[in-house]
Nucleic acid binder design. Structure first.
Lengths: 225, 225
DNA sequence: TTTTCAAATATTGTCGACAATATTTGAAAT
DNA sequence: ATTTCAAATATTGTCGACAATATTTGAAAA
């Protein structure tokens, strides 16, 4: 069920995972300089594996490296986030279209069950914000698996997912959007049930556009302060 | 005009570029084991920078690494190529949609001029295959720039472009497709001129679907031999 | 001959040291 | 006080050596 299974082989992989976590959660601030010696010491390893980890994170767009001048945590300004959501819209839309023709009936049924659980959790107000983000995550992950496209799963479940979490962790959420979001999820499942890939894609894209609009407005409002 | 400007700072970057080139051109066969010591010696550097290069190439999906067992050139089977074209369809479609509302009139006009040159080159049969692939490359690159989306430019101009070249370099090309492809390019420019993003996206997606269909059929035919 | 398994070999993973480059510091000049 | 610039410091880039792991080899048993 988890998008990022925690398998850690080499020290470079360990460092990569720990750094990614620190970056996504905001423990390491955006734009912060990443000192190799300091980080290597903190992780109890040499600079070799750490440098490999930084290369990997650069590929995931979580850090920005400048030759001979080191690495910094990426800065997610509004333009960057806008770009991210446009890419996500395209990829998740495609994933949804593919899933419509490739998911089994059982998988679609499970997706529907997932939404039932999600709805109950919302009504009980049981840690709503948590449930929203978790429920949304699971929903998108199931559809992604349904696309049967390994490259899509890799991109969306990897770098795109981490960047998305990073966005979410530093913008306030609109609690008013949980309900319409759930309804949109329902609509998508309906389209999947009817094997209507074209509609499923359109609905998924609208869903993501809505998410961006919500976040974008939040940012604009905060800036006025 | 070039999708991959050859800026090389550190030795790891040099190795990365040289390896990527060798892989894309087929000088290094698919599935081939990449021996660190051997490659480091060939490039006249230590294993440190080379390992960083391999990490980078892994992120670009040009090599597949297994902890403690080394790296191999990625194997592009038909399913992988199919996945690639689905991802490209989604991303290039989005790029084209965005370009429709963001390109300047001048940029669109230049795009039209580009197609005129392309048409002439085809009629003169001046190295047709070269012209086709080069012309197609420039066309897509210009639209990509027009999207004004740095992340899209990065993904499509980077890893996706290299993987696409890798596909093209090991599948025979259908000369019969140059004409319809040019016509599709013209249609796309027309949609861009009218600032019809929705149509531009649809046309670009069809264009890429057509390319995949052509390649896919070639592969199927070759397998019958 | 084929299979098994341990020794031998090869390869990857890691570290510490040094070189190359960037950044900071602080004294001298304006 | 501000600016300039060179020395001092800090940081990144690179290499070679060794440790850990995987792969191969070849002798012994079935």
């Amino acid at each position: 069920m988890y998008p990022t299974p925690p398998k850690e082989g080499t020290l470079a992989d360990v460092a990569s995972h720990r750094l990614a976590h620190s970056i996504v959660t905001g423990e390491l601030a955006q734009g912060q300089k990443l000192n190799e010696t300091e980080l290597a010491e903190r992780f109890g390893m040499g600079r070799g594996p750490l440098r490999e980890a930084l290369r990997h994170l650069e590929g995931m767009r979580l850090v920005k490296r400048v030759p001979n001048a080191g690495a910094r945590v990426v800065v997610l300004d509004q333009k960057t986030m806008s770009d991210l959501y446009e890419v996500r819209e395209a990829l998740e839309g495609m994933a949804c279209r593919l899933a419509a023709s490739r998911m089994t009936e059982q998988e679609i049924a499970q997706l529907s069950t997932l939404l039932d659980r999600h709805e109950q959790e919302i009504e009980q107000q049981n840690g709503m914000v948590y449930a929203q983000s978790e429920g949304d995550r699971d929903f998108h992950y199931q559809i992604l698996q349904g696309s049967r496209n390994a490259m899509l799963m890799d991109i969306l479940g990897g770098e795109q997912y981490q960047l998305l979490r990073m966005c979410r962790n530093r913008t306030s959420h609109n609690a008013l959007r949980t309900r319409p979001a759930l309804q949109q999820h329902r609509q998508i499942v309906a389209a999947l049930s009817q094997r209507d890939g074209e509609l499923a894609e359109i609905l998924m894209r609208r869903h993501i556009q809505g998410a961006w609009q919500s976040i974008s407005e939040m940012i604009d409002n905060e800036e006025k302060t």
